[in-house]
């Protein structure tokens, strides 16, 4: 079998046989402990500072942010954004419990559809699992309530992020997923797909010059819901 031949070849070149049980146990322990490495000091900040770092980094990567005091402010914020960007009043929404609580009745002109994105959809609204201040990155583990296509097929992606879900380094976001992810899966905490998204899609393939809006969304807009009292500046 190719598998055995490849593994035997690796061992032959490393000039050893299969690992003795004690060594294998040590490596298994390393996997189970998944030790952290060097975490940049720039993320060792107070919570309000983390929020500012996240916003700064996201804007540096051409994303935009609106800060909201309560969930009820979402429809107004969405309507304003769509108007400002000259986008139609139509959006596809992730079937996420958080988004289902939004009181849309105040804005009857917004046309909403729940589900995955279809090629004709121009705008999506989804809920991020976490935000990572280190680089202004959003984390989206796939789940029935978080379809992947919402991050990809639309022209403009609008994302709800709670400040209570904002962390400093990537490792903290993975720890959240390690703790909560098993609810999606029987086989471990990893869902089918985890996207880390930092700004709108872009390409520099034409003369090494950056252009926004390659194959994914041209615009990324974050609605930052300030639900964490300790994160208020």
């Amino acid at each position: 079998m190719s598998r055995d031949i490849i593994l035997a070849g690796i061992r032959r070149h490393l000039r050893r046989g299969p690992l003795p049980p004690d060594q294998a146990a040590m490596l298994s322990a390393r996997l189970a402990e998944h030790p952290r490495h060097i975490i940049p000091k720039r993320v060792q900040l107070s919570r309000p500072e983390l929020v500012s770092l996240f916003v700064r980094n996201l804007e540096k990567e051409f994303g935009s942010v609106a800060r909201l005091a309560e969930l009820a402010a979402v429809p107004q914020a969405v309507a304003e954004y769509l108007a400002a960007q000259n986008l139609p009043n139509e959006l596809v929404i992730a079937p996420h419990p958080d988004l289902r609580q939004i009181p849309w009745a105040s804005h009857p002109l917004l046309k909403l559809r729940e589900g995955r994105a279809e090629p004709s959809d121009l705008v999506s609204l989804s809920s991020a699992f976490a935000g990572i201040a280190e680089t202004g990155t959003l984390m989206f583990p796939s789940a029935p309530e978080r379809p992947t296509t919402l991050n990809l097929l639309v022209e403009a992606a609008i994302v709800l992020l709670r400040t209570s879900r904002l962390v400093g380094p990537y490792e903290d976001a993975w720890d959240l997923l390690r703790a909560e992810g098993t609810r999606y899966n029987s086989s471990g905490f990893m869902p089918r797909n985890v996207m880390l998204i930092t700004g709108p899609s872009r390409s520099a393939d034409i003369e090494q010059t950056l252009e926004l809006g390659a194959h994914g969304p041209r615009r990324l807009h974050v609605l930052l819901l300030e639900d964490d009292p300790t994160a208020k500046g």
């Binding site: 079937p95 029935p144 990893m190 869902p191 089918r192 985890v194 880390l196 930092t198 700004g199």
Partner: peptide
Amino acid sequence: GQDFSVYTTFSTGPRRPGDLDG
């Protein structure tokens, strides 16, 4: 020279029960 690329994506197996895409 970016701090992080736009999309860093982890794929683990096929579509799970209840998933709407993938």
